[in-house]
Design a protein around this nucleic acid. Structure first.
Length: 876
DNA sequence: AGCTGGACGTA
DNA sequence: CGTACGTCCAGCTG
């Protein structure tokens, strides 16, 4: 424990720790694009940052050896002569490390003819005398001798430099059985192979310690060497000069003449700009915030280099045309919009940028260019593609979308905008005007400059994206993006008439239920407030306390149903009915208000909205329209076929996740289940319960179905028992029976999590990756959550991949066939298609076959088709 | 006005 | 102690 009143001096042996880091970290993962290895620098700095954060030193210095030559090699030419050549991969890293330290305003010391450890010894000695707590960080065992009441040694363990062991006086005695000042005596007797200092043969630490304890000191031992019997005694006498030499050489010098004293080493503010620059050169991204954090620099406030974005010119239509002709290679594109239509267009190639207003003249030049094969790079293309399409411009050759690429690389997000990506991948700050300032100090980037940034971010991302993920982007995500743009533009026809009628009915019903509920407890209460409900249920009605939540006790539907069973009270069922009615009313009303002038709802699909590869839907969310209850049919019935079209077609994959599970696990039983055409849950139930398929009862089928679906989510026996309301022992028995029949499923699930632990990420059938750092977490909750998510990710993600492939193939084929029917909605495993008059047969064939052949698995992909004038009729 | 937690809709 | 989402409301903060 350090005395907080005393200043802390940290002195580090730069060379030895960087060298350790070099061997601890894989070179391949730490190299710049131009081939400079950086693992030693990175490992050293990561360690130093951790040290600074943990120990909060007030004074710091890092010492280096100047060369292999020192006064020791002059005294004993064989000293360290056995050291192999410094690996060339390491050689260049020391100067880079020194540059980093300089940027961090950390003093670097080295002195001709002395080793770094002598500098450490001198500073430690002086520091202790001047009232510092001293921390010595070195990978050389000779520094053990420096430990005393004021000096602590931090020594790297075998794994590398991420874990440092603290050696204070007690720790040295515990580990080496001698006090620190006597350790060099032990070392002198034993010898140090790494320094090419042979010791006494057959004498190891044990013997050395025994002798020293017996004789009290090395001098006394050597003086009485004659008294020691046996072979070791002879050896000692024969090697007594070696021991004396070793002891002389391993004594660290504590009085090296240095240009600084400890007080000069006070921590100084880092040069944030210089740190950014050198880190950018070394392509360190994650280290930067850690450094800023450790030294208490506000990263946002620290200046970040703003690369000189070219000032865009504003050409006339003719000049624009020739600019586009000259621009070979990728062109960055930014379309700003006003009221859903293009307003300004910014274009950039590698060198310069142009921007123009969207008007008749420029549009005449831009339309053919957008439709051409010239490769285009966007950031978040979908909304821009839609705006262009509204202005009769079609985008082809969409080569890259930096937002989607960033998401593929890190689906857990935070990169929601170009500004985020510029920071993450270029370590630069996108010029942004402060919206809170009336007269902004800084101009925001113009569309042309945004395009220039997008292009550069695209280059940076390309370096990072694995080939398979790059294929995923090109083959699946970008075509999907264009398909989604069309679906959003089309929208889905919804009947305001039906919704408003239903909404009024639900409102009246909810009010009635509320009144009845108030009557049962004798007063009004806000039924929508969990807090007020807790008051009523647990204080007034004195019902038993339920599951705990962060802020109190749960009042959710499952809990209320349990309560109703154990402590029936009319308030409980009325509350549940009220919840149901108000929830439906909310949904109906929000849908109603989302109907546009064209009588259709246009949702927005967020392509980067999930961590698994699924889409999400917002404003409004059309992927969670109720379906389970009778009432919800009325909502779905409001989704109708639009004017000019004949009918709606729904198509959904049946049990796609279980089929993927069968494919990935290769389980013969499960594969057979899908190939026989028997009802899946009946087939599985027959196996699990050992009966004929015809004898599987509805109860058996329910259990097996819950089990099968639960598997995909990493369900436990506890969870299964809870859901099925059966004993945990029965749930456990069920799981055992299941795995006895479908063992390969269990093997697959286990091995896929193990593989993810090794790789650090999961992968879908099509190569989509999702990182799982928490699989290595020592925190059990975090780790087990990660395990379940990792179990699910390849399955859910593969299903998402397959649906995307089906969707874009259907979209393309409908277009190619010249049909006017169009896909409107995607609900994860279901598509809703609006079918034009006379096109049913063709559309049904296309949808069925493209969904069926989207992937070739060991089991068939079964597709169910529904037909009707509205979504309720068309569903099944 | 903006955020969090609880609740609940979907696959 | 079952994955993946989005939205609503209440109740808190500024």
């Amino acid at each position: 424990m350090t005395d907080s009143a005393k200043p802390t001096l940290l002195v580090v042996d730069g060379h030895s720790l960087a060298y350790r880091a070099f061997y601890a970290l894989p070179v391949d993962n730490f190299s710049t694009r131009d081939g400079q290895h950086t693992n030693g620098v990175y490992g050293f700095l990561a360690m130093l940052v951790n040290l600074i954060k943990a120990e909060k030193p007030t004074h710091i210095a890092v010492a280096f050896d100047t060369s292999r030559q020192s006064f020791r090699t002059r005294e004993y030419t064989e000293y360290k002569a056995n050291r192999s050549e410094t690996p060339p991969e390491f050689a260049g890293q020391i100067p880079l490390l020194k540059e980093c330290l300089a940027a961090m305003s950390i003093t670097v010391l080295e002195k001709e003819d002395f080793e770094a450890d002598d500098i450490l010894a001198t500073l430690a000695t002086a520091g202790a005398a001047e009232g510092f707590d001293v921390l010595v960080c070195s990978g050389d065992r000779d520094t053990i001798q420096l430990v005393d009441d004021d000096v602590t040694l931090l020594y790297p363990n075998v794994q590398g430099v991420s874990q440092l062991k603290r050696y204070d006086r007690e720790a040295v005695i515990e580990r080496y059985k001698v006090p620190p000042e006597q350790y060099p005596d032990v070392a002198a007797l034993v010898g140090e192979t790494s320094d090419n200092l042979p010791g006494v043969p057959k004498v190891g630490e044990k013997t050395a310690v025994k002798w020293l304890t017996q004789f009290g000191s090395l001098d006394e031992l050597l003086a009485q060497a004659d008294t020691i019997k046996g072979v070791v005694g002879n050896n000692l006498r024969e090697h007594i000069d070696d021991v004396r030499r070793n002891r002389a050489l391993n004594r660290l010098l504590r009085d090296v003449d240095l240009p600084v004293v400890p007080a000069d080493l006070a921590v100084r503010p880092i040069d944030a700009q210089a740190v950014r620059d050198i880190f950018a050169r070394l392509e360190f991204r994650t280290l930067l915030p850690r450094v800023f954090d450790a030294v208490g620099v506000d990263a946002a406030a620290a200046p970040m280099s703003v690369a000189q974005a070219p000032a865009p010119t504003e050409p006339d239509a003719a000049t624009l045309s020739s600019w586009l002709e000259r621009a070979d290679g990728e062109v960055g594109v930014t379309v700003t919009t006003l009221g859903g239509l293009p307003e300004r267009i910014g274009l950039a190639n590698g060198e310069d940028a142009v921007e123009v207003a969207w008007n008749e003249d420029t549009a005449a030049v831009l339309r053919p260019w957008f439709a051409s094969a010239a490769p285009k790079v966007f950031c978040d293309a979908k909304s821009q593609v839609k705006a262009l399409r509204r202005a009769d411009a079609v985008v082809d050759a969409l080569a890259f979308d930096v937002l989607i690429a960033g998401w593929l690389l890190r689906p857990s997000l935070p990169d929601k905008s170009l500004a985020d990506l510029v920071e993450s991948y270029l370590d630069e700050k996108l010029p942004e005007s402060d919206p809170t300032q009336l007269v902004p100090e800084e101009e925001g980037a113009t569309p042309g400059q945004l395009s220039w940034y997008a292009l550069r971010v695209g280059d940076a991302l390309r370096q990072k994206i694995p080939d398979r993920v790059s294929d995923l982007l090109t083959e699946i995500e970008l075509p999907t993006l264009l398909t989604l743009a069309d679906m959003e533009l089309a929208g889905v026809a919804v009947s305001h008439q039906k919704l408003s009628t239903f909404s009024a009915e639900l409102a009246a019903r909810a009010d009635g239920i509320a009144q009845d509920a108030y009557a049962t407890i004798g007063h009004e209460v806000n039924l929508g407030s969990p807090k007020q409900l807790q008051q009523v249920l647990f204080d007034e009605l004195e019902l038993p306390k339920t599951r705990k939540t962060k802020t109190g006790y749960s009042t959710d539907a499952a809990v209320l149903a349990d309560l109703q069973e154990s402590n029936p009270h009319p308030f409980l069922s009325l509350l549940l009915q009220h919840r149901e009615a108000t929830k439906l009313r909310q949904i109906v009303e929000s849908l109603d208000s989302a109907i546009g002038e064209d009588g259709r709802i246009h949702t927005t699909y967020v392509q980067t909205g999930s961590q698994t590869g699924r889409l999400s839907s917002t404003d409004p969310n059309l992927q969670n329209i109720p379906i389970r209850t009778e009432e919800s049919k009325l909502i779905r019935a409001a989704f109708e076929v639009g004017a000019g079209y004949e009918t709606l077609l729904t198509a959904d994959y049946s049990q796609i996740e279980m089929r993927i599970m069968a494919h990935l696990s290769g389980d013969e039983g499960l594969i057979e289940a899908f190939n026989t055409g028997e009802d899946l849950h009946r087939f599985v139930g027959a196996r699990v319960f050992g009966v004929e398929p015809a004898e599987v009862t509805p109860a058996m089928r329910t259990k097996v179905k819950a089990m099968s679906y639960g598997l995909v989510y990493g369900l436990s026996a506890f969870g299964l028992s809870k859901q099925l309301r059966i004993e945990q022992s029965e749930a456990k028995e069920l799981m055992l029976e299941y795995f006895a029949r479908f063992g390969a499923v269990r093997d697959y699930l286990r091995s896929s999590v193990e593989q993810a632990r090794i790789d650090g990420y999961t992968e879908t059938i099509f190569g989509r990756r999702r990182p799982f750092p928490d699989l290595a977490s020592p925190n059990r909750v975090l780790r087990e959550n990660a395990e379940r998510a990792a179990l699910n990710a390849p399955i859910q993600g593969s299903a998402a991949d397959i649906m995307k492939i089906a969707l874009l193939n259907i979209h393309a084929e409908l277009g190619d066939a010249g049909l006017s029917s169009r896909v409107l909605l995607q609900i994860h495993d279901e598509l809703v298609v609006e079918v034009a008059p006379g096109e049913w047969d063709a559309v049904e064939r296309i949808v069925t076959s493209r969904m069926g052949d989207a992937a070739s698995l060991t089991v068939p992909l079964d597709v169910q088709i529904g037909r009707g004038a509205d979504w309720s009729e068309a569903g099944h």
